[in-house]
Nucleic acid binder design. Structure first.
Lengths: 246, 246
DNA sequence: GCAAAAGTGTTGTCCTTACACCCATGC
DNA sequence: GCATGGGTGTAAGGACAACACTTTTGC
């Protein structure tokens, strides 16, 4: 019995040794994550950027990034960056793409994996504002450090596609929202105007909006109804292939 | 003038030094690429896999992967892997996702970026068959080395979505193909049966199929018309937001 | 002549779009 | 009472799904 256990252990050890020495033979590369945090404020799509650290890019905007630690999961690294740079917690992030051109960083080869999110500017106060961290209108950013403009453009396209198939918009609206607020989100992100009646019909038909029987208050026009999004019903029906199709 | 040039040079040097020392401060991580090569053969969706190198995974299938070289672009690395492992050249690859769980490789932390492709088994003879490289039915692969099954599943979902929005199918068909062949591709990948008449109508309506005025030959049934895909027209209209919408 | 797959059209349903008028609130 | 945006219905056109019979070839 002892023999048996020992042979298993030995066998595992030799397997591990083989695997370890294989991995040790690989070249190692500096790895970063960058976060593209889209925010929505009133009627405009914004993105969270800082002024670049590097003298080379003085005055240019840069995404929120940092190196990945030796034993850190990529998604964890992205959440850590966000916490360290902005003080934000519990932000839903999704991986978009990895960028690995050898010359993308002037300091040498750096591969970066990009995560993106969409949230409400008003829900997430910026508790840290080092490096002039701030929200900027997406379409007013024309130049950035590194290949960050290219990354931003990729993420804008990703977001436009994503919001038409997933209930991203509801992460950034208040729990109770009016149809006007919802429509503003879609119009800002897709950069287009939509017909109010058709917009309402489409969302009503999906069946994920729950009427709260409450109304807007203190608005300078006829108050609108407030709705909540039926996350539970959405998750249920998503399993059967029925989701958001805008 | 000389002074001026010199000061620029000095300034650039100091910028570069700053950037280099920043990058040198980053931890370095072993990086690999894995290729998920989907193939289509007659009527079935297959994927190209090998038997794992590692004793730990003896008998298990593994994706085609290799480490990324220190100064190599990710996409180049993927093409290199494919050439080295299979002898294939000029394969169109797309990045799908990066996987970075710290425990995903038994030999230690390895981050991998996954590329996928879809091609015709008959167009790409396997000139190298080391490690039992071969095509396997996608749905007959139930277990794989590392997290490769998870990666494969992700890529299958990616492919199903992708083929409904992009003309992937035409990369794997002969230049001249019948509508039956085209429908077989969609049915195999989406795993569903479709109505022949409606299928034809849909593709006809898109306007990307060009009638060659040729017919199938030597088939044991009524020969079908052969078509080519209008890549040029597709690229034109894609710019205006009109593409494949299946 | 038999097997196997190609080719073809219509109908009903549903989704999408375009469009105009009255209503509730703050000031 | 006026400005602002909320709420609502309808008609036309386009896309999609369901469905059956005749034709052409190889053997």
């Amino acid at each position: 019995m002892l023999e048996y256990h020992k042979s298993i252990a030995t066998s595992n050890d030799s397997h591990t040794k083989e695997a370890v020495s294989l991995v040790e033979s690989y070249p190692r590369v500096p790895l970063t994550v960058d976060c593209v945090i889209f925010g929505f404020d009133e009627k405009a799509l914004k993105v969270l950027v800082i002024k670049s650290d590097l003298a080379q890019y003085t005055g240019k905007y840069s995404l929120l990034g940092a190196h990945v630690k030796s034993n850190e999961d990529l998604a964890n690294a992205a959440h850590r960056v966000l916490l360290e740079r902005t003080g934000m917690k519990d932000v839903y992030l999704e991986q978009v793409h990895s960028f690995g051109r050898p010359d993308r960083h002037p300091g040498g080869r750096v591969v970066t994996t990009v995560y993106a999110s969409l949230l409400n500017v008003k829900h997430h106060a910026l508790s840290i504002t080092d490096h002039e961290l701030n929200w900027h209108h997406v379409d007013q950013i024309t130049e950035m450090a590194f290949d960050h403009k290219e990354i931003l453009d990729t993420c804008v396209r990703w977001l436009q596609k994503r919001i038409q198939e997933h209930p991203l918009a509801f992460n950034l609206l208040p729990k109770k929202f009016s149809l006007r607020q919802l429509q503003n989100v879609y119009e800002a992100i897709l950069n287009s105007k939509m017909d109010r009646r058709n917009f309402r019909k489409k969302f009503a038909a999906m069946g994920y909006l729950i009427d709260t029987n409450e109304m807007e208050v203190h608005v300078t026009h006829r108050p609108g109804k407030l709705y909540t999004f039926d996350f539970e019903g959405y998750e249920q029906r998503k399993k059967n292939g029925i989701g958001i199709d805008f």
